[in-house]
Amino acid sequence: MVPDAGTALHLEGLAGAGPRLRQAVAAVRRVEPTAPELFQLLAAACSHATLLGDDITLHELAWRPTPRPAGRAPPSRWPSPSATPPSRS
């Protein structure tokens, strides 16, 4: 469904592709959280929501919880305070 919406966008413009973009976003919402292609589909659905100007759906998709392997903490986006900066040689 997602590739069809992207193709429609290029061929028909935003006005013609709007319904297909909404269908594609709805289909991605139904994808199992363990599906191997989840991240690619979420990226496409976020792009579609942006094109549609649907900020609420974009936020929901971008912050959709995804499973993590047991015993692993999510990666930190910030270095630890004790980390030393890399040397510039």
Score class of each variant (00 low, 15 high):
A5N: 11
D4H: 09
S47Q: 12
A73D: 07
A8S: 13
L14N: 12
A5T: 10
E37S: 14
P79Y: 01
R22W: 02
E60W: 01
E12T: 06
P86Q: 07
D4T: 15
D54G: 05
A62L: 06
L14R: 13
R88P: 10
L52V: 10
A26K: 08
S47W: 01
D4R: 15
P85A: 14
T84Y: 02
G13N: 06
E60S: 14
L58V: 01
A27I: 00
R88N: 06
R68P: 05
P67F: 00
A35L: 04
A5D: 03
I56Y: 05
A45H: 00
E37D: 15
S80N: 13
R88Y: 03
A73S: 13
A83Y: 04
W63C: 10
A17L: 11
G53R: 05
S87N: 08
V28G: 11
A8I: 12
A44W: 00
A44K: 01
G18H: 03
H59G: 08
P33W: 00
E37Y: 03
V25L: 05
H48N: 14
P36T: 01
T84G: 11
H48F: 14
P75Q: 09
G53E: 01
R77K: 12
P3M: 07
D54R: 07
H10I: 00
T50V: 10
A15G: 12
S76M: 13
L51M: 15
W78H: 09
R22N: 11
C46Q: 10
P85D: 11
P75R: 10
R22T: 13
R64A: 02
G6N: 10
W78F: 10
C46T: 05
D4F: 07
S87K: 11
A70D: 12
L41T: 00
L21A: 10
E12S: 15
E32F: 01
F39G: 15
P79S: 14
P65F: 01
H59W: 03
P67A: 08
L38F: 02
G18M: 08
W78E: 12
S87G: 12
T7I: 12
T34V: 11
P79V: 09
A44V: 01
S87W: 03
R29Q: 14
L41V: 01
P75Y: 04
A24G: 13
R30L: 09
W63H: 09
L52C: 11
A45D: 05
T84D: 08
L52N: 07
G53Q: 04
P69H: 05
L42A: 08
C46S: 13
G13R: 06
T7H: 12
T84F: 01
D4V: 15
T50I: 04
H48I: 06
T57G: 07
W63Y: 10
P36R: 05
P36W: 00
A83P: 11
R68L: 14
R77Q: 11
R64F: 01
E12C: 07
A73F: 03
R64I: 09
H10C: 08
S76H: 06
L11S: 14
E60H: 08
A26M: 05
T66S: 10
P3W: 02
G53A: 04
P81K: 14
R22P: 11
R30N: 04
L52Y: 07
P74D: 08
A49E: 04
A24S: 12
